[in-house]
Design a protein around this nucleic acid. Structure first.
Length: 586
RNA sequence: GCGCCCGUAGCUCAGCUGGAUAGAGUACAGGCCUCCGAAGCCUGGGGUCGGUGGUUCAAAUCCACUCGGGCGCGCCA
């Protein structure tokens, strides 16, 4: 309907151009919005005010000219000029009510569209280091990414979800050593655990598993492990130097094969845990992309070489630098260190090069906001490689700030003091967790009150929406008990009986749903859908309290049951996009 | 110091690609179950949209400056 009105205005403008009233060169962006006040009709356009200046006319006069030039349309029953020059459109009641029929016809498909034209989109999100279980901070990125993916699929994009597994690099070696040292401790080797190691309980479990499967094959005595290792922080040394030395020692003693086995015991166990966690959370990935394979496939060398060939690399102090300042970055960045190792950034350049090589029309990265300083250099690299950086969107998600008992919860992965996503899910349920995470726009800092989220109180907005759905189901169940029927076809033929103001408002809200989904998808703003559903639920509850649906009059009953069925269908569809269930009773 | 994000009702937040009297939840004060589920509904009070200046017919929305809060500025990942 909205685009239909835009077309009407466009035709009117063309008519005025032919009449010489408007300059033929004008290319106005036609804006049509739904009105907030029913007195202003259903839709309004500010086009006359936008064009008043270039046309050299006063807006109300121009609005009148436009109205005179508007083609007739069967759905529009009245057009008015209002205020400083708004053009208000009033839609026939029957046209509005027809949306109910449409919703019931389309069912689960209502709200989907093809505006994405099957464009291939890749969304990469979470991509947490596999050094421990996901915590509640990752949960927000997971819920947000999965919801954006659903929304985009709903409007016709071909979306792939990807998790970039950082399975190379120093953190993973620290993990391997952490596992090994816990393993040794469990086999009674008297050894201190490094202050910089991963201290979480999950390391103990991985070590125990290793003991069970491989027995003592990785055992060395304390002096073999510790002799000559520089002191840890607690002994007045440097924790970084200490743990790096331990990594080297582990490699020497175990040899590459056994070291790799310990390393993979840690990696595989944690990655499997993350994958299960996400799957249970309703977050599905199409691809798990290993950072290690970039090196294995020589893609990092290739990327650096390509930058070098293009003249964007120079050498300084034994390292290779990418001249990212030539592409708007603050400073140049090292890609190959003086010790010959590639930096994380070099891997990331190769990774993005490969994303583009895989033929996506659009690439979306969802990062924690603490990585925002990283954006310019990645965009710089993409430009330097001759790709179009407008195909890459980097969306930054602020971490949720947790509160427990009114106090902020401090979290650190390394020290093991964090709330895991799994704990959160167990306590508040997947529905509430998914819903809470996308309730706020992503760049907004979010206060996540654990006590509130855990409490099964009616403060929880997800219940409110689910309750509306369950209430409709309950009404439909009541029918049988009262020996009354619901005839959808008969109801569709009597929609004009829905004349109560509550019915009109609820119907209008239902008609907005496809527009909300579209806007939420295009802007990657799931919270728009959340707010919409809350409003819809509110209008349903209001209607419910004001009128009876199960009435003796067959025509009114069927029409009303069609309306509330349509409402529950839209709630069901909307919740599904959010990854939240729509229970039939609760 | 430089860069990015955020300052809207007591609290948590919408509204921000400029549009008609600034919204919701919560909290607070009242009212509504012989009636389809009260996890609900209705009514009410509550605001210098952080501040100042600018652009515009029109600014919470755009621009500049400024004050507050968060984050980032490694040959870490």
């Amino acid at each position: 309907m909205k685009t239909g009105i835009e077309d009407l205005i466009d035709q009117a403008i063309n008519t005025l151009k032919q009449q010489g009233i408007l300059d033929a060169a004008l290319q106005p962006a036609i804006q049509v919005t739904r009105t907030r006040d029913v007195a202003h009709g259903d839709f309004a356009s500010n086009i006359a005010m936008m064009l008043a200046k270039p046309a050299g006319m006063n807006p109300r006069q121009l609005a009148q000219n436009l109205i005179d030039a508007l083609p007739q349309n069967e759905h529009v029953h009245k057009v008015e000029i209002a205020g400083p020059g708004f053009i208000n459109f009033f839609i026939h009641q029957q046209t509005t009510l027809d949306i109910i029929r449409t919703i019931l016809d389309r069912g689960d498909r209502f709200g989907t569209s093809e505006i994405g034209h099957g464009e291939k989109v890749q969304i990469e999100f979470v991509s947490a280091n596999p050094t421990g279980p996901l915590h509640v901070g990752h949960g927000r990125g997971a819920a947000y990414g999965a919801t954006v993916a659903s929304l985009m699929r709903a409007v016709g994009y071909d979306v792939d979800c990807e998790y970039y597994v950082n399975d190379a690099g120093r953190q993973m070696n620290i993990l391997a050593v952490s596992v090994w040292l816990r393993y040794l401790q469990q086999l009674d080797v008297d050894i201190a655990f490094p202050s910089n190691g991963y201290k979480g309980d999950y390391i103990l479990e991985i070590a125990a598993e290793l003991v069970e499967k491989r027995g003592g094959v990785y055992v060395y005595n304390a002096s073999q492990v510790m002799d000559g290792i520089p002191p840890d922080e607690v002994d007045g040394g440097d924790k970084e130097i200490h743990i790096d030395a331990l990594i080297e020692r582990a490699r020497q003693l175990l040899g590459e094969k056994d070291y790799r086995a310990v390393f993979e015991a840690g990696l595989d166990s944690i990655l499997a845990d993350i994958a299960d966690d996400l799957e249970e959370f309703g977050v599905h990935y199409d691809i798990w992309y290993s950072e290690q394979t970039l090196a294995d496939r020589k893609l990092i060398e290739k990327a650096v070489q390509q930058l070098q060939d293009a003249g964007h690399i120079y050498e300084n102090k034994g390292a290779l630098w990418f001249r990212s300042t030539a592409f708007g970055d603050e400073k140049d960045r090292v890609v190959i260190r003086d010790n010959g190792q590639a930096t994380y950034f070099a891997s990331d350049i190769a990774y993005h090069m490969d994303k583009f090589a895989r033929g996506f029309d659009r690439v979306i990265n969802i990062w924690g906001a603490d990585h925002h300083g990283y954006v310019p250099r990645v965009k710089a690299a993409i430009n330097a490689l001759g790709e179009d950086d407008s195909k890459l969107d980097i969306l930054l998600v602020q971490f949720a700030i947790l509160y427990r008992g009114g106090e902020r919860v401090q979290m650190s992965t390394r020290s093991g003091s964090f709330v895991t996503l799994r704990e959160l899910r167990d306590e508040v349920g997947n529905d509430a967790a998914r819903f809470f995470y996308v309730m706020r726009k992503c760049e907004q800092h979010m206060d996540f009150d654990l006590d509130l989220a855990k409490s099964q109180s009616n403060d929880n907005p997800v219940y409110y929406i689910q309750y509306a759905h369950a209430r409709v189901c309950s009404v439909l169940r009541q029918l049988a008990e009262k020996n009354l029927s619901h005839d959808i076809e008969a109801g569709n033929d009597k929609l004009e009986l829905l004349t109560e103001s509550h019915e009109t408002e609820l119907t209008l809200q239902l008609a907005k749903y496809p527009e909300v989904v579209e806007k939420a998808a295009i802007n990657a703003d799931p919270h728009l859908l959340v707010h919409y559903l809350r409003e819809l639920a509110n209008q349903f509850h209001t209607y419910y309290n004001a009128h009876q649906f199960i009435v003796e009059d067959d025509a009114i009953r069927n029409a009303r049951l069609n309306l509330i069925s349509a409402a529950s269908q839209v709630i069901h569809n909307g919740l599904k996009l959010l990854g939240v269930s729509a229970p039939e009773s609760m």
